[in-house]
Structure formats: structure tokens, C-alpha cells
Deep mutational scan, measured.
Amino acid sequence: MAAGGDHGSPDSYRSPLASRYASPEMCFVFSDRYKFRTWRQLWLWLAEAEQTLGLPITDEQIQEMKSNLENIDFKMAAEEEKRLRHDVMAHVHTFGHCCPKAAGIIHLGATSCYVGDNTDLIILRNALDLLLPKLARVISRLADFAKERASLPTLGFTHFQPAQLTTVGKRCCLWIQDLCMDLQNLKRVRDDLRFRGVKGTTGTQASFLQLFEGDDHKVEQLDKMVTEKAGFKRAFIITGQTYTRKVDIEVLSVLASLGASVHKICTDIRLLANLKEMEEPFEKQQIGSSAMPYKRNPMRSERCCSLARHLMTLVMDPLQTASVQWFERTLDDSANRRICLAEAFLTADTILNTLQNISEGLVVYPKVIERRIRQELPFMATENIIMAMVKAGGSRQDCHEKIRVLSQQAASVVKQEGGDNDLIERIQVDAYFSPIHSQLDHLLDPSSFTGRASQQVQRFLEEEVYPLLKPYESVMKVKAELCL
């Protein structure tokens, strides 16, 4: 049975990233139509530049190519590739079939990587351009969430054990800070992308030097003109047959890092959902379990974690691919890159769409948070109580021993009897502590235990987050809708 299948058929496997999760716009960027249309555009740009620099290419040939950029006979191309065992030459023939007058000058002087690699770089750039505003929107939604809850005390956790208090907004800023680093890295790697350009079979530009009869300047002009037509500021000066596969490492490393950030955020949300302090959106008709109707599973956060793990592992592909590119190139890269580049971007696209949807509907339960604080705060307040007693004339050592005994009794009630923490009640009825009984409410005010959390939130948002989001103001209103 021949390899390949009808990918629109229910009898043929289709990647869930495309069929179930990723956005239509990201799927289109990695589609065959987008790819092969870009090949034709690159052939047109090459012909236009070659004509401008004096090669015998007519206006009629150029116009014929322009008129057929979208006229792609995919069936013919597939048949040609089956016959020739070469995808680029299959599309040269297919393009030439609908451009008979231009057929002889299509791909003039070029090698397969002229269309293959340059198209990949265009796709990487455009895919990054799709991700950047999506990530900015996630940051914006979380920034709104953090600002609104900047002063809401909550129990902090280290080692997932109760620690000092923080605020809900401050905790959210930990998430935002990681995503801001990801946004900066995505922008950097996007701006650092260079075009492969017009380089020939081993990167020496020998074929173009021959076409222009040894004119170095025209060869350099050709490279520059096509690079500018493709919208790049610069091209690699040095290439082998391909652009260095280190570029793929750079791009997928940034995406993998984004995956790590999203995994951490969504894990926190899942843990908070278990504590009943916070939940992701839950639709009115949504079913959490087929057997347990009360369940409210954090399905979206779980999906993000599941896909983020996949995204983090994909960076190993370009690392290994770059390491086995012998001399000017081997074909070890080809099949692998067809999979890992598309999957990385479709996965990143999915987790950003999902995280935006989550961040637009996060639900906080202040009463649950308050109750958990009441359970733990008495123990945390013991040092403040000791200091207040010393100020009232008591002995630190005597007070410490009193607190120690009462704390152990209260802990026994919590752990052995399943009761509430009654340390404060014990202190309130103990005559030894009568000098500070009137101060206990103040000493137990949760806001006095959150330090500068709310001020940190305000400063972080104003100095770091809002300036970073400013270039994306025009796209901030787009909502994230999930079908599944």
C-alpha cells in the first residue's frame, strides 16, 4: 500500500493539533497551500530580480507567473513527485505547466533550498508574528487579574506546605514575570531571523556568478533584492546548502521555554482548584465526569500541561538535527523538520489560546482563602504575639514557653481530632496574655502579614508589564474561544 493518505478522510490519521486544537490561522501558515504558494512567490521574486539585473526574462513571463501564483494543481504535483521522487522539481514542473512561456526560467540558477529553506524562514517569521500578540493578550488578562487582587491576602506555599502570606495578585505576578520573559525572547528570536537568500547549491553562489558572467556586484544585488522582497532586513552571508540548523534550535528553545512557563502556571491553577481557592472557567453544560456528576475538573489547565510537556520535548529534535548536518548538509534534517517545526508552533498556539481562555474567566473564592488563612495564621502570628507581650512588660522566655504549650495543644486538636485551630481562643482565655487581649485582632490582621506584596504588584505592572504590552494595544480586544 502506498504511503500517505487522504487526510480529510475519517479513515486516515490526522494530527489532533490540526484537527482538534490549533487555530485556523496557525494551521494555514503550515498548510501545503501556504507552503507551495510561497515557493511560487519566491520563484517570481527571483525572476523579477534577475530581470532587473539584466537576464533575458520578459515582462510577459513575469506576468504569467504572477497570474498563476494561486493556480496550484495539487493532484498534478503529487503525481509528479511520485514520478520524480523530488518535491521541488515536482512543483517546478507543475508551475511550468500553467506558465508555459515562463517554464524555462522558473528556478533559474537556484537549488531546492532556495524555495525550501527560504519558505521555512518566512513561515517561522509569520508563525512567530501570530504567537506574539496571543502571548501579549494572556499577559494582559493576567495583569488585569493581578491588579484587581493585588491586596487580597492568601496563604503562600513553599514545598506545598503553608508559608508566609502573600497576595493573590502577587502570586499571579510570578506567572506574568515568566511570560514577559517569554514574550521578550519570542520577539528577540523573531527579529534575529535572517533570510537564507540566493546562495546556490553549497552556499557559494557559483551558479549565479556564472549567470551574471562573473559580476560579483550583481550577485550581491540579486541576494539583497530577493531578501528585501521577502520582507527581511538581512540575509546570511555564510550558508551551506541550507541555512544553519542552529536557527531551528533557537526558535524551538524559546517555544519550549514558553511551554515550561505555561505548565507551571496551569499546575498552580490545578492545585488551587483542589484547594477550592480558584477555578478555571466551567461552562453551564460542561460535564466533569461521566460517573461523578459533582466533579469540576480543571480540564483546560490539564490540557495545557499535557501539550506543554510535548512542546518542551520537541527542542531535542533540532538539537540532534543540527549535530548531524555533515559538511554542507545531509538530508537527516528533512523529514524531522517537516514534523517538529509545525508541531512546535501548533502546540504553542494551542496552549496560548487555551491559557487566554482560562485567564479571561478565572474565578476566585475569597471566603475559602480566608478560612485557610484562619487555619494557619495563628501559628504564624506567634512571633508577633511574643513581641507584643514583651512590649507590655512580659518575659520573652516565659511567653515563648506559654505559646509553645498552647500551640501544641491547638495542633493536637487540628491533627488528632480534625478540629479547627483554636490557638487564639486559648490565648484569649489565658490570664497571662490579658495585657494584649485587646491587640489580638490587630495582630491577626492578614494584611499585616503580606509585606509589600501589593506595592510590588503595582510597581511591576507599571514599570515592566504595561510598557512591554504597549506595541500590542491594537490587538488586545480579541477574545479566545474554545470549541473543545
Rank of each mutant, 00 (worst) to 15 (best):
S306K: 13
D398K: 07
F208M: 09
C483Y: 04
H91V: 04
L406K: 12
Q61E: 06
E462G: 09
T267G: 07
I106P: 03
R303Y: 03
N297Y: 00
F236L: 09
F460L: 09
E279N: 00
G288V: 09
G451D: 09
K101V: 05
E343C: 06
M278N: 12
E279V: 05
L135M: 13
D120C: 13
E360L: 07
P318A: 07
S207T: 10
V413K: 15
Q205I: 03
R40F: 00
S67K: 14
M380R: 11
C483W: 03
G197P: 14
V457N: 14
K224Q: 00
L42R: 08
V324W: 05
P467N: 14
L69F: 00
L482W: 11
V324H: 00
T321Q: 05
R396P: 07
G259V: 00
F145D: 00
G8K: 14
D192T: 13
T354C: 04
K170M: 15
V368N: 01
L44H: 08
T244C: 10
L272Y: 12
Y466P: 14
K470M: 10
K101E: 02
I386T: 13
D317S: 08
E425Q: 14
N384E: 05
Q184G: 06
G419I: 15
H7S: 12
D87E: 02
H7Q: 13
I373G: 12
L352H: 01
A335M: 00
E401A: 10
E70M: 14
L155S: 03
R296F: 08
N384M: 07
D398E: 14
D420Q: 06
S359T: 09
K264I: 04
R137D: 07
E473L: 07
A18T: 14
H7M: 14
T227H: 02
F95Y: 00
G169S: 07
R188L: 03
D430A: 12
A411H: 08
L355K: 01
Q356V: 08
D120A: 03
I351S: 04
Q409V: 11
N336H: 04
N384D: 13
L142W: 06
Q456D: 06
V315N: 15
H86D: 03
P16M: 00
D215L: 07
D398Q: 06
V92R: 02
Q458K: 14
E64N: 11
W175A: 01
S306L: 10
Q397F: 09
V138R: 04
V254Y: 03
D73Y: 02
G54W: 06
G169A: 01
G197N: 15
I176V: 10
R141Y: 12
N357E: 02
V226S: 08
N353P: 04
M89T: 01
W43K: 10
V413C: 04
V262H: 05
C304T: 12
V247P: 02
R372G: 06
S19H: 15
C173W: 09
H400K: 11
V247G: 04
E250N: 12
T204V: 09
I287Q: 02
E64K: 07
F36C: 10
A110H: 08
F232K: 05
F433A: 06
T94G: 07
E70T: 14
L440G: 04
L355C: 03
Q320W: 07
V189M: 11
C483Q: 15
H310I: 14
D87N: 01
V168G: 05
Y466K: 08
K246W: 02
D216F: 02
R125K: 05
Y365C: 10
I269G: 01
R329I: 15
C266W: 14
T38L: 01
D332C: 00
K187L: 05
G116T: 10
A410C: 15
T94E: 15
A163T: 01
T154M: 01
F195W: 05
G393R: 10
E473N: 15
G203S: 03
L255H: 14
D349N: 08
D182N: 04
L186P: 05
A136K: 11
W39P: 05
Q286R: 05
G96R: 11
T38I: 05
I238Y: 11
G156I: 07
P24G: 13
K415R: 12
S253M: 15
S261A: 09
